[in-house]
Design a protein around this nucleic acid. Structure first.
Length: 219
DNA sequence: CATTTGATGTACT
DNA sequence: GTACATCAAATGG
């Protein structure tokens, strides 16, 4: 089955307070900037995944209600929820509305648009072989590593210009995107709540070859 | 190329 | 103990 479908949207104002996971693609094309360790890195968000609130999305960390880990998911829209993934990586989410609903959007990949050298240094593996520019923030764990993001910023406000980590350019969201099933989950895997920008090599690869590729095949 | 595996924190059964 | 919103190195064709 070919899952990806092309969707054209017109967005007047990017408002994370709007209810529902359909808000997620508003974040595509926004700029995420970190000023951490005295160094600045910015990425253009190219891939996101939406997760619902308690009781409505079995794949969401908020599904069973508030826990010590997911408390920041219950914060106001624009709050970041950062958690440790597989004991190794950090993953960054942005909460969306309505207030207290505990739905969030995982930022899955970005294109580095500033601080290239800093990002490459942070992403240098033990083997010392530098990543391709394309791969610097290609994947949720890589994205946070390139930005220098750790759990210390969990719960902070991404819409606050004074926050070391912030989202900007919300006025000019992408006008066109693709959508398909979420990656790397086993429950509710059929919901097409992953959104990404077309023709972007910095979008993360599919893990399960069976699901889909060739998003251009219909059309 | 594709597929497998090791590393390893935290939440929850 | 088991599962997990992952990644990179190792392995096989």
């Amino acid at each position: 089955m070919v899952w990806a479908t092309k969707t054209v949207v017109r967005i007047v104002s990017g408002d994370l307070s709007r209810p529902g996971v359909e808000v997620a693609p508003l974040l595509l094309g926004t700029i995420l900037t970190s000023d951490i360790g005295g160094r600045r890195v910015s990425v253009r968000v190219v891939e996101v995944e939406a997760y619902g609130g308690p009781g409505e999305d079995p794949a969401s960390h908020a599904h069973h209600g508030m826990t010590p880990r997911n408390t920041s998911m219950f914060g106001p829209p624009g709050t970041c929820y950062i958690y440790r993934s597989y004991g190794i990586h950090w993953c960054l989410n942005v909460t969306i509305g309505p207030v207290g609903h505990a739905a969030a959007v995982l930022l899955r990949a970005g294109q580095v648009v500033a601080g290239f050298d800093v990002a490459r240094e942070r992403r240098l593996p033990p083997s010392g072989r530098p990543s391709l520019a394309r791969d610097l923030a290609r994947g949720p764990g890589r994205l946070t590593q390139a930005l220098g993001v750790t759990g210390s910023l969990d719960g902070s406000d991404l819409l606050d210009p004074g926050n070391p980590l912030r989202l900007t350019s919300l006025d000019e969201p992408a006008t066109e995107y693709l959508r398909g099933p979420r990656v790397g989950i086993s429950r509710a895997a059929d919901r097409p709540w992953r959104f990404w920008l077309p023709d972007e090599p910095t979008v993360s690869a599919y893990r399960e070859g069976a699901v889909t590729r060739r998003e251009g095949s219909e059309r």
